[in-house]
Simulated assay, not measured.
Amino acid sequence: MKKTLLILAVFMGVAACKVNPFTGKKVLNFYPNSQIFPTSFAQYDQFLTENKVVENTSEARMITKVGQRISTAAERWLSSNGYAGYLSDYKWEYNLVDDETVNAWCMPGGKIVFYTGILPITQTERGIAVVMGHEVAHALADHGAQRMSAGTLQQLGAVAGNVVIQDEQKRNVFNQAYGIGSSVGVMLPFSRSHETEADRIGLQIMAIAGYDPSEAAELWKRMKANSGGQSTPEFLSTHPSNDTRIANLTEWAAAAREEARKFGVTSFE
């Protein structure tokens, strides 16, 4: 059993060699698109059948319009930086769903949902572009597959510990400590790093799409106001705090505008 776990761990380490085109860094991802995308697309289709999709309204059309502009901007960046064909397996889709939850999300392969509850926060097309850029960035960076990969390794670590530790009392202590430690010390920071990365990538591609990146910090100020200033302490959260995001997005806006100028974008909506 121990030998099997070691072989599996070595195989995963070798397989996890995909490069994030926006950072140039290798990422933890041993789930190929061919494996994860079909499941993602099927789950997305099922979700749409089980929820009320808003169609043929100005808001729904705007979601699609902004999504297409953002994904086109992403493709322009990728093609000009040596990643032509990177999006060949993606099937972009943007839907507005009637739900009061203040949220939007993206599944692997480019399947995006906005809830109507977030529209009072986005307020304008620029606000929608901030959220859309962030969600498209999650898809571009394969964050879903990375989370699955990290979750698999977390489970593998738990199994290995239970195999090695023979004493039942010590094994129970290990399981409790490992559960808390791997979540607070590894999985939550991993998730927060994805959110920060998606913020930065999203800011860049929304600027290339012609949207003013300074809107991003303003949107998160509205998010903070909507929450009443109440939030989970950052170290216990899957997301950075509102204040952290506002500071980051304010700092990064100028660089996003400079990147957009490389593509001939000199004015922003």
Rank of each mutant, 00 (worst) to 15 (best):
G67L: 08
P32Q: 10
N242C: 05
P21Y: 03
Y44N: 04
A84D: 12
E218F: 03
Y44I: 08
M1P: 13
L219I: 11
S191I: 02
W252I: 00
A84T: 10
E195T: 10
G144A: 10
Y90P: 14
I205C: 10
L119E: 13
G127C: 10
S58F: 01
N162V: 03
T72S: 15
V265S: 09
V14F: 06
Y115R: 02
S149G: 06
Y90Q: 12
T101F: 09
A160R: 01
E218P: 00
P21F: 10
F190R: 06
V19L: 05
A209L: 11
Y178F: 14
Y90K: 15
R76H: 11
Q43E: 14
W77Y: 15
L6T: 11
M12K: 02
A160I: 07
F114I: 06
T116Y: 00
F30I: 12
L236M: 15
G228T: 03
H194Q: 15
Y94V: 05
V163G: 00
K221R: 14
K221L: 11
T4C: 03
G24R: 12
W252A: 13
A247S: 11
P240N: 07
S79W: 02
L219H: 02
R200M: 15
L236W: 05
G133W: 05
G13Y: 00
K2Q: 08
V19T: 13
Q169L: 14
L48G: 08
E259K: 14
I165Q: 03
K2L: 14
S79Y: 03
R76Y: 07
A217F: 02
Q68G: 15
G181Q: 07
F22A: 02
G264P: 04
K224C: 01
K25Q: 15
A104T: 08
F114N: 12
Q154E: 14
G109V: 03
G82I: 09
S34Q: 15
S241N: 07
Q230N: 13
E100N: 13
N103C: 09
L188A: 06
M1N: 11
F263N: 06
V265L: 04
Q155S: 14
V159I: 13
S149Q: 04
M148P: 07
E258S: 10
V186G: 00
S183Q: 08
G117L: 01
M187I: 13
R126S: 15
